[in-house]
Design a protein around this nucleic acid. Structure first.
Lengths: 228, 228
DNA sequence: CGATATTGGCAAGTAGTACTATCCAGATAT
DNA sequence: ATATCTGGATAGTACTACTTGCCAATATCG
């Protein structure tokens, strides 16, 4: 397959494909001559992964590259590869705020990790800091979170991952396939869950404010329109 | 409170505050003279909200402005205000892909909404399209999702929203407080949940690949270090 | 009263991200 | 043999979220 075909089948413009090649997101095709290279299904697959992580996952190119580099490095064992993938997905937290609120939050996170038996999580995993940072922010916004409030969310996350996410990952297949599936699962199911939470919240908040289904579809509630 | 104090208490530089004022994210202070304006706690509170949505929620400034404009517009009733807030949180989906995969996905979403009794969700809510788009992407990546697989996620979202999220929103207070709480809850609890899912996944995937807790903390597993 | 600092307001500039356009010489296709 | 395509390189673009610089009008302080 040549670059024009790769572009046609993926819907990604040729200059953009060249850009991904330069950036190391997409491996070089097999050079058949000085001015020709051959691409295959793996390139198409990779291209679709890149677009999914960019467009749906909104991951920066640099993050996608980190993940891809870890996958491609044959030296890295699968554990470090998974670690790299997970940590790349944590937006870099600003270094050590180091005040009382932050230490409290971080302690709560560590307790939570222990309570949920997430004992394989590294003690210095950036995800812990990320969660702590979010809890601090909630507190500063006047919506402090207690451990009891957080626990049901953590349990739901745990159940979904253990009973569903992990089953979708081919644990016995080749390592790059496993990491790829893990990242897709993490990012896209995350997006899907987020959308569902928004649907639930839209329905539930409307219910609490006393609106009936299709009230304003029927035009009963006046809305700002061209003629209103 | 003057702008310098607002800056000092929030940690946001003065030029950035001026920028937010220009952009309409922060309401003007009360002008006491041609070159002086007075700010109060509401400005500080708003500033913290902006920073939380920007830094933790990674929402674009334009989205934050949309939400804030809806809150400030006294004409808008609370239902439309909530709608605006929810829809601003859906990244604008590209218009009508209109192929078979997309229609299937959209149908699955509509079934899901019906099954979960999310009957206050508008039939044309962009969140439906957003979820459908994510399902299509998953299919194109070779990880198609069935209704049975999606259902547990939807149920978890529903339970969390109905039993926890909604309780944190002051439904009887002033309308701007309610919308603000709703947005904070949606965005920050979303982030927190995402982090917890990542923690669960890190622990669970390590477990499946046969790693023990603190295996590599003790240096048993050789890692790429300065001396390795 | 006068020196210094602060404020609001505006215009222009900057850094980072994700492309996009242009050009080129060397293949290939027809 | 002529038109098209390819890889490679460089430069430019559009957008976002600030940041800088400047100004004249106050405040503030000695």
């Amino acid at each position: 397959m040549r670059i024009s075909q790769l572009s046609a089948e993926s819907g990604v413009p040729i200059p953009t494909i060249k850009f991904y090649l330069r950036e190391g997101l997409l491996p070089q095709g097999e050079q058949t001559s000085a001015t020709r290279a051959e691409y295959d299904q793996s390139h198409l697959r990779r291209l679709r992964l890149i677009r999914a992580l960019l467009e749906v996952g909104r991951l920066p190119v640099a993050t996608i590259r980190k993940i891809i580099e870890a996958v491609q490095d044959e030296e890295t064992d699968i554990h470090d590869m998974l670690g790299t993938a997970h940590y790349a997905l944590s937006p870099a937290p600003e270094p050590a705020p180091d005040d009382a609120d932050w230490r409290d939050a971080r302690e709560m996170v560590d307790h939570l990790v222990a309570d949920l038996d997430w004992d394989r999580v590294q003690p210095d995993a950036p995800t812990r800091d990320e969660l702590a940072q979010t809890l601090v922010t909630l507190k500063h916004l006047g919506m402090p979170v207690t451990r009891d409030e957080l626990l049901p969310y953590a349990k739901a996350a745990d159940t979904l991952v253990r009973e569903h996410d992990i089953r979708k990952i081919p644990l016995d297949g080749p390592r790059d396939t496993a990491v790829e599936a893990l990242v897709i699962c993490q990012v896209l199911y995350g997006k899907a869950f987020d959308a569902m939470r928004r649907l639930a919240q839209e329905s539930e908040s409307a219910r609490h404010f006393g609106f009936r289904p299709s009230d304003d579809c029927a035009g009963v509630t006046p809305r700002k329109g061209p003629e209103a």
